[in-house]
Design a protein around this nucleic acid. Structure first.
Length: 281
DNA sequence: AAGAAGTCCTGGGCGC
DNA sequence: TGCGCCCAGGACTTCT
């Protein structure tokens, strides 16, 4: 669920809260969530380190710590953070607790346990295969129409599947892939290489990806869905977004906002794809 | 070797 | 009321 815009929102909000704070202790409630080292080592390495910066790469949240360590978090489907300044009990979905100086606590929560956390030396991040394979950041200057065209060329997969491939363009998930394709008026079933054959289509897709993500980031200024704040009274400030801002995702049967034809839902590689059969070709 | 399929995970919704 | 099935989907591994 959290795609680039949601992760971006969590990173920005989290950064404002924990940057500069020292980690005084760690409690791992679910050991399997910690990747690549033992829980003992994980806790020992974190204790005493200061969170110097919070940033994003693809859908990964990176907390750069003092002494060259980086805490890498991927929320996958249901991961999130709960930040509390009081010593309130955390929800049963809490998997890892970070105790911060001053008594605040940051909990990593995850209902379905698909998310992961790993601690790596910052300069060794690119020795991690999954990390190295990550594609271009769609909102960066290195993402160009030409680069997109080169990636599309020769790929016989459906454009929807292409957009979900994190080794090509990072950050899009099932929701924003559908939204970007609707905005570009491209059928999700169209082959990637056939998009590449038309300059106009490549440009439309390029612009759509960026606009879709930019708008989604702006729309979340009210607060990230995957970061919850609990105050001293135990009341939760869980900033809610406005109701479904999506044009096609989750709107099967509703009229297309462009042409009025009913939105369709199909299955592509086991995933739902929402699109307008009339104006997306 | 690209790309499709299978797998993991849990709670909610639905049909019977 | 309760059981079982399906669904949500990110990104891996496995298979073709």
């Amino acid at each position: 669920m959290p795609e680039l815009p949601e992760v971006e929102a969590v990173v920005n909000a989290l950064g404002g809260i924990v940057r500069g704070k020292r980690i005084t202790g760690v409690r791992v409630l679910r050991p399997q969530t910690i990747q690549s080292m033992s829980v003992t080592r994980f806790c020992r390495l974190l204790r005493g380190r200061v969170i110097e910066r919070v940033r994003r790469r693809a859908k990964f949240i990176l907390l750069d710590l003092s002494d060259g360590w980086t805490l890498v978090v991927h929320l996958r489907m249901t991961g999130g953070f709960v930040y509390a300044e009081s010593r309130r009990p955390f929800p049963p979905t809490a998997r890892v607790l970070f105790l911060l100086e001053g008594g605040a606590r940051l909990a990593y929560t995850d209902i379905r346990n698909l998310g992961l956390i790993r601690l790596v030396r910052t300069e060794r991040l690119d020795r991690w295969a999954e990390w190295r394979r990550l594609g271009v950041e769609p909102l960066s200057r290195t993402f160009t129409v030409r680069r997109l065209e080169e990636m599309l060329r020769g790929s016989r997969r459906a454009i929807k599947a292409f957009l979900l491939d994190q080794t090509k363009v990072v950050g899009l998930g099932n929701i924003y892939a559908a939204e970007a394709l609707h905005r570009a008026r491209l059928s999700p079933m169209r082959r990637a290489e056939s998009v590449a054959r038309s300059r106009a289509r490549v440009v439309a897709l390029y612009e759509s990806i960026r606009e879709t993500l930019r708008e989604a980031i702006a729309a979340q200024s009210t607060g990230p869905l995957h970061l919850e704040f609990v105050n001293a009274q135990g009341q939760s400030h869980h900033p809610r977004r406005a109701p479904s801002p999506f044009r096609v995702y989750g709107r099967e049967g509703e009229p297309c906002p462009v042409c009025g034809a009913p939105i369709r839902r199909i299955k592509q590689h086991g995933r739902s794809t929402y699109y307008c059969a009339r104006c997306q070709t």
